[in-house]
Nucleic acid binder design. Structure first.
Length: 468
DNA sequence: GCAGGGACGTAC
DNA sequence: GACGTACGTCCCTGCA
């Protein structure tokens, strides 16, 4: 146990529904103490922390999680301080290129409809499409009719303008949210981006990242790949080594549920999505890419507590067929169903659910009068132990890695965490060794039911190259 | 002029 | 009738 306890961590671990309150709000809520001025807050903060740190008894049941978070705190500090280099020039160029694209497209669109309008304004897009062009309306939202990408993609089949609006939005998204926002956060002294990882925020135990968020950098081809490739070591003497857990949540689901079939898939080293596809489409000799896509959605959906309706939207089929897929999944992986049932039963009794390592989330609403509320609470309940255990695993790996790095056993620096992925900067000469050790540490974190974790490791001159 | 909500889109 | 967890941008409304 740590000699001193960071009370914010303790509070987070004990009350998983705790959100980012200000210190004042927190004191108020916990101690019914009205805080008036900034100076008072500071004084109380100091007094409270120093007193509580030495006197707080640590409840045993949270011991392992509290220890984990304390160890992780130092890892996160190192990562934030070191930061991530990005090629500023490259981002500038991308930004202007994207801006040129949008400008051109905007002129074309306004020519086409004979009216100036802002494609980023839902209200104005509604006016253009549904009032002026008389295109049949679809999904309703609070403020009128939806113009989201799903709707626009459908309209685009018959009206070019919809496709152009989608493209415009895409360019502007990349330009403003990624190029511009990242450039803004390059520290003038270090020339690196220093994100903030929020350690006491999410309800599952994941980290989050802000200012800027490095956990939602676009993946994919084209401009997205170019943004990602701007992330690279500053020096040509270094490379990125990227390791990500393969299907970690489904693997965790197998471990926690002890479903024989699910465990067997991983024991055999089979592709989980293809395997599920074979269960869903047993009469087919060979699984098509479309069938695998459907199975993939089912596999992911199960982790999120899918409904037939939700899945049907995802794979564009009828809710009836979608429900059949889900039922088939549970018929083929029967222990998953009983595992979920057990979680909900336990949550109703104790008021909380927990990860393999004992991280808890209190669940409210399981007995709500409203069935929608109940269903939502059930989805939260079944998702948290899986997502949370995966989060715990990555945290443990980070702690272990940092130990090895400090001991000189792994040559390199941990610079980013993206939920199931860790990114390191490594001197060229040591890349193969770092890759091996990284995989060993990460895969060694947990083994249950005869299966262990699997990690894919890649290296490259930048984040894009190191992804495959 | 500004704060906050809604809609949207990105990630895992 | 919205499948889990996040963050950031923009528009627009409501309020001074």
């Amino acid at each position: 146990m740590p000699k001193f306890t960071d009370v914010k961590i303790l509070d987070y671990v004990e009350k998983s529904n705790y959100r980012n309150q200000t210190f004042a709000e927190w004191i108020e809520a916990d101690f019914a103490y009205q805080v008036a001025t900034d100076l008072q807050i500071q004084a109380i903060e100091q007094a409270y922390y120093s007193k509580k740190r030495s006197e707080l008894p640590l409840s045993k049941e949270f011991g392992s999680i509290v220890q984990m978070e304390h160890d992780l705190l130092n890892v996160l500090t190192d990562m934030e301080m070191l930061g991530v280099y990005v090629d500023k020039q490259e981002l500038y160029e991308l930004s202007s290129e994207l801006q040129a694209k949008s400008r051109l497209l905007l002129a074309e669109m306004q020519d086409l409809v004979g009216e100036t309008f802002n494609p980023l304004s839902a209200k104005q897009v509604q006016h253009i499409l549904y009032d002026r062009m008389r295109i049949p309306t679809g999904k309703k939202i609070k403020t009128g009719f939806s113009v989201d990408s799903e709707t626009l993609a459908e309209i685009a089949k018959s009206h070019a303008i919809a496709g152009m609006i989608l493209d415009y939005r895409g360019y502007e998204k990349l330009r403003s949210t990624y190029c511009e926002w990242l450039i803004e956060h390059i520290n003038p002294e270090t020339h690196r981006i220093h994100t903030t990882y929020k350690q006491t925020f999410t309800s599952t135990g994941r980290l989050s990242s802000e200012n800027p968020n490095l956990q939602n950098i676009p993946a994919g081809d084209g401009y997205a790949a170019r943004i990602k490739s701007a992330f690279r070591p500053e020096s040509a003497d270094m490379q990125y080594v990227v390791a990500d857990y393969s299907q970690v949540e489904l693997r965790v689901l197998a471990m926690l549920s002890w479903d024989e079939n699910l465990l067997q898939v991983f024991k055999n080293g089979e592709d989980i999505h293809t395997r599920t596809a074979k269960f869903l489409f047993p009469t087919y000799e060979k699984i098509t890419s479309d069938q695998r896509r459907i199975a993939k959605s089912v596999n992911f959906g199960v982790i999120y507590g899918i409904t037939g309706f939700g899945l049907s939207k995802m794979i564009k089929t009828s809710p009836k067929d979608a429900t059949i897929y889900i039922d088939t999944f549970f018929a083929q992986y029967p222990k998953v169903r009983t595992y979920y049932d057990d979680i909900i039963t336990k949550a109703k009794t104790t008021g909380y659910v927990e990860t393999y390592y004992g991280r808890r989330r209190t669940i409210k609403g399981l007995n709500d009068a409203n069935s929608m509320m109940r269903a939502a609470a059930e989805r939260e309940a079944i998702n948290m132990p899986v997502q949370g255990t995966a989060a715990d695993i990555v945290k443990l790996a980070m702690i272990q890695l940092q130990k090895e790095i400090h001991a000189g056993n792994i040559p390199g620096q941990l610079i980013m965490q993206v939920h199931d992925e860790l990114v390191l900067e490594v001197p060229n000469a040591w890349v193969p060794e770092a890759m091996q050790k990284l995989a060993d540490v990460m895969e060694g974190i947990l083994s249950i039911g005869g299966i262990s974790l699997k990690v894919d490791v890649h290296s490259g001159k930048n984040w894009t190259e190191a992804k495959d």
